[in-house]
Design a protein around this nucleic acid. Structure first.
Lengths: 111, 111
DNA sequence: TCTTATACCTAAGACTCTAATGTATTAAAC
DNA sequence: GTTTAATACATTAGAGTCTTAGGTATAAGA
């Protein structure tokens, strides 16, 4: 779990990619989905998640929609068009990053 | 927002892995080797490199040897035994990180 | 001789995350 | 029926890692 350092810079991409796949999600749902997909290896802390969501919204990559569930309020996030094209670019950069790293580390080629 | 963010947390591993492969290297040589292996895509800045080398030395993963080249002094770095086992662990964590990320992002498995 | 490459280094500030803390509702367990 | 866990939002201090910008000095090439 020392790989925590490696996660830096991946959170935005993860959020955007999940929203691209799922359509819309709320914050807590994202943490659960990530935990599930990573078999519990990756746990998003709220101190990282919420500021990032707010930042992506402020940058115009996400829009929100508040939905009342009884007395509790869920805030759903959805990609804007800018957000859509941003995902493609970011995932592309990530696969490129992996190729580059495998060359620099001289380990087997990836993806 | 290129892959620069993704590089966070990879510098220590890169240094250690190169030293594991090459035996001993000096700072400037490391920057050149990384540039070469990545086809110019990855450029280590000295502000990141030297503090990291000093930190790894302080932690006992590296030892130094000063060699005079005329009036100029080269500082060669070499892995300690602790450093050796650390490389294996870090590279292992990295491949694991890639597998995890490809599951979370739901893209093709890597490495 | 001027520029580029080699070779070391530090420091201020930016950015992203962790850990801690806070508020409040709902479901489940005892 | 009350405590505990899970759900659901959020902020903030501080740590760690990097970038940007600076500094010193030698060697090689135009």
């Amino acid at each position: 779990m020392h790989s925590k350092e490696l996660l830096k810079g991946t959170l935005q991409m993860i959020i955007l990619k999940l929203l691209a796949d799922e359509g819309k999600m709320y914050g807590y749902e994202i943490t659960q989905k990530v935990k599930e997909l990573s078999d519990g290896q990756m746990v998003l802390t709220e101190g990282a998640l919420y500021p990032t969501l707010h930042k992506l919204e402020a940058e115009g990559l996400l829009v929100t929609e508040k939905v009342a569930m009884g007395k509790r309020i869920r805030k759903y996030y959805r990609l804007t068009e800018t957000g859509q094209s941003s995902v493609l670019k970011k995932v592309d950069e990530f696969t490129n990053f992996i190729y580059m790293m495998s060359r620099v580390l001289q380990i087997k080629p990836a993806l």
